[in-house]
Structure formats: C-alpha cells, structure tokens
C-alpha cells in the first residue's frame, strides 16, 4: 500500500469528533463523508483534497467513544484507506477491520508529517517514509484478523462460515 499523509497529532480523537451524533439519523457513506471531522477541523475535506492524502495519521487512543460504525465509514468514504496511530479504541478497531479500513498501530508518528509519501508492506511489517527515506517496523496483524481482511471484511468471512 502506498499513499500520502494527512496528520493530526491530537490524542483521543473520539467518534463524536469524527462524525457528530446529529448526523447519525442517516447512514449513507457519502452523507457521512460530507460531515467527517466537521467539529474537529471543518477544513479537513479541503486539506485532504489539497494534499491528495489517503493515509490519516493521528495520536493515541484514536476512535474512542461510541460504537458508531458511521465513524470508520465516514473516514473511508472521505477518501482515506488507512489510519496510523499509536493505539486505537477497541470498538473502532474492530469496526474498521470489519468494514475493510486498514489500521496500523505505530508508535513513531513523530516521524510522519503532512504530505509525506509512505509505502507499507504488511507481509514484512515495515513502513517506509519515502519522503525522508527511512524504514520503520510496524506491528504485524494477527492471523485471525488477516483472514478477515483477506476475505475483504467480516461480511464475506461470515458468508463462507454460513455456507460451511
């Protein structure tokens, strides 16, 4: 996976900041993407487009708060394929795996900044910051979760189970 970075160093960015509850009366991805991060940084959309970013970097405990799947859906629909943070809140973590938004736990986010180009190799567990030509180690994804990701999300994984 290769992409450009948009970064917020803030810790504890919660699901209310990712998608405020007032927009939960609908669940269409495009609608949610329109309001993604609205109360946190209303310029998010403009900024992401300007950078052409597909990789979001954030501080620890990203996605804390409610179980709303609207949060990873909003992020994914706004053009982000992958989120990198030191830690994730657990429901956000499973929701993202389940809908096929890639998450990477990585302690060294201070080595990444807006506009950096990254190349990630999941097999070897390495993250290369091409812009500064440095390679970092990332946590490997456990086999069980890799299987879900390989099925392109939990729904397909479950389909196979149901047909067994």
């Amino acid at each position: 996976m290769k992409g450009i970075v948009i970064k917020y160093s803030d810790e504890n960015i919660n699901t209310d900041l990712i998608i405020p509850a007032r927009y939960l009366n609908k669940s269409e991805p495009e609608y949610l993407a329109e309001h993604c991060f609205e109360d946190f940084d209303y310029k998010f959309k403009e900024k992401r487009e300007k950078l052409n970013a597909t990789i979001l970097i954030a501080g620890k405990n990203f996605g804390s708060g409610s179980s709303r799947e609207h949060a990873p859906i909003a992020i994914k629909a706004s053009g982000i394929d992958c989120v990198i943070a030191p830690t994730f809140a657990r429901i956000f973590f499973r929701n993202s795996i389940n809908i096929g938004l890639t998450l990477i736990e990585f302690d060294g986010i201070e080595n990444l900044k807006d506009g950096d180009v990254l190349e990630i190799d999941f097999d070897t567990g390495s993250l290369k910051n091409i812009s500064i030509n440095q390679i970092f180690e990332i946590k490997k994804i456990p086999k069980f979760l890799q299987d879900i990701i390989a099925s392109e999300g939990l729904v397909n994984y479950a389909k196979n189970l149901l047909r067994e």
């Binding site: 179980s67 709303r68 799947e69 990873p72 429901i91 499973r94 929701n95 389940n98 809908i99 069980f144 879900i148 999300g153 939990l154 729904v155 479950a158 189970l161 149901l162």
Partner: peptide, 18 residues
Amino acid sequence: TGVGSTDLGVSMALGKTW
C-alpha cells in the same frame, strides 16, 4: 461488550461473534 453494526449484522445471521 459493545461492537459495531457489521458485527451485529453478522451475529444476527451466525449467532456467533469474533
């Protein structure tokens, strides 16, 4: 424990969760 919507959707079909 709390989960997301996809988890629930799958659980309603399988009766299982990961």
